[in-house]
Nucleic acid binder design. Structure first.
Length: 146
DNA sequence: GCCAACGTTGGC
DNA sequence: GCCAACGTTGGC
């Protein structure tokens, strides 16, 4: 899951313990949270749009999906006037801090053959939430985060 | 700031 | 339904 550290960094998550993953306004990314993720699923916390993009820590899905409250808040940057209370358009999950890791910077991620097909690394990928295969998860957590 | 690679919008 | 124009993401 990508986050701009200016908005929510791994340190912010460590301080808060849990964060609602607000602000996703892309249907594919929403579908991952709403339809694919399960309570307890592992999360690679990725810092994007910053001086050193890369994986900065581990987290965990800590809620079932529920409507993103910011879509109904006219004062929010994420307000969606077309979304109705009775048919919310945007869902999210809560994400719980697990631990910080040494930063695995984007150029380093690109060097590993085992990660060659990782969705987040694909050319032109802009999705803020992408799936990680079990093999990719094992490779990153076991080999790189000892 | 640039630009590739999308996704969304809206006219038709 | 098509597609051009526009907006966004995100690395560099």
């Amino acid at each position: 899951m990508k986050s701009e550290p200016d908005e929510a960094s791994i340190d912010d998550l460590a301080t808060r313990g849990t964060l609602p993953w607000t602000g996703v306004r892309n249907y594919q990314a929403r579908n991952f949270m709403r339809d694919v993720m399960r309570l307890g699923d592992g999360v690679l916390f990725y810092h994007s749009s910053c001086p050193e993009p890369g994986i900065a820590g581990l987290a965990e899905v800590s809620s079932a999906p529920y409507p993103d409250p910011t879509q109904f808040d006219p004062k929010s940057d994420y307000y969606d006037k077309a979304s109705k209370q009775e048919a919310p358009r945007w869902s999210l999950v809560d994400v719980k801090f697990v631990r910080k890791t040494p930063l695995i910077a984007l150029p380093a991620l690109r060097e590993y053959d085992a990660l060659a097909d990782m969705v987040v690394l694909r050319r032109g990928n802009r999705l803020s939430i992408t799936p990680v295969t079990p093999a990719e998860w094992r490779f990153i957590t076991e080999k790189l985060m000892k």
